[in-house]
Amino acid sequence: MASIIMLKVCQLTEAEVMDKIITLKEAAKMVPDGSSLFWGGFGYQRAPIAFAAELARQKKRNLTIHTCGSEVDLEIMAGAGVASRFEIAFVAIEALGLAYNMRRRVAEGKVQVEDYSNLAMAMRFLGGALNVPFMPIRSLMGTDIVNKSRYLGDKKLKVIDCPFTGEKICLVPSLQPDFSIVHVQRVDSNGNAQIDGIIGEDIEGSRCGKKLIVLAEELIHEDEIRFRPDQTKIPAMYVDHVVILPFTAHPMQCHNYYDYDLEHLMMFHKLSRTEEGWNEYLENYILGVDDHYGYLDKVGWDRLMSLRAKKPLGY
């Protein structure tokens, strides 16, 4: 009898291990200090804010973040001391102004930013996904992006004479970070992930990391995936872990699911002007809550529901 129970327990445990669906806490726990991450989302769209906040709650340190352009999530990771290196093209809060946390941390020397352009970063992810060491691009040449480096030195990029045409061309090194973190609208339990709206650099980014963690607003049945396979932007075979979580991008937006929360965003931006203000936000909305649901409770469900997208607009 006892052995039967043991067997059942084993099977259960086995089944849980096989399942890709894990909690946000478990997902963040997998990321050791010092890891490198591809960071998904673009501008206001599908930003994995909840993951950044959980990394801060777990006091992760010395991460390197790779992305084209992100905003509140980068501010959280720079401000809370989670990430010390960023290889990026852009950080600000579009329409509102400068990224104050990043500005302070850079001035303090606590954060190092290695500057690229959006296309350069996207090509670095594409190169990593294709498993080739570099990609050629026609931007960057003649500027300080070529001439100045924060920590990569001559590994940042190379301008060469094309071996075929003899013309100048810029080579950017491919990236295969330890993890890719991507936020999507829908996923099935196998990990097939659907993205609505724009993709940004998430096709390349999701395929370049050594492990891929997908955060999804909604869990859908496999039949829905097979009914609309053209909507699957990340097939399950790439996906290692899935976290199902509503309002992952709040206060940013998630196409077809919810709009940005401009009031919260402006409050965030205003507080981040000073270290004191930022600490107040960090304590109130990130460290002072147990988890993402605690954050959502704090923001308030009436407010969250008012942000829900209206058909057919998508916001």
Partner: peptide, 13 residues
């Protein structure tokens, strides 16, 4: 640097 500005974004491209 005194002030970290947004960066290139797609500007250089």
């Amino acid at each position: 640097p005194k002030v970290k500005l947004p960066g290139s974004g797609g500007g250089n491209d």
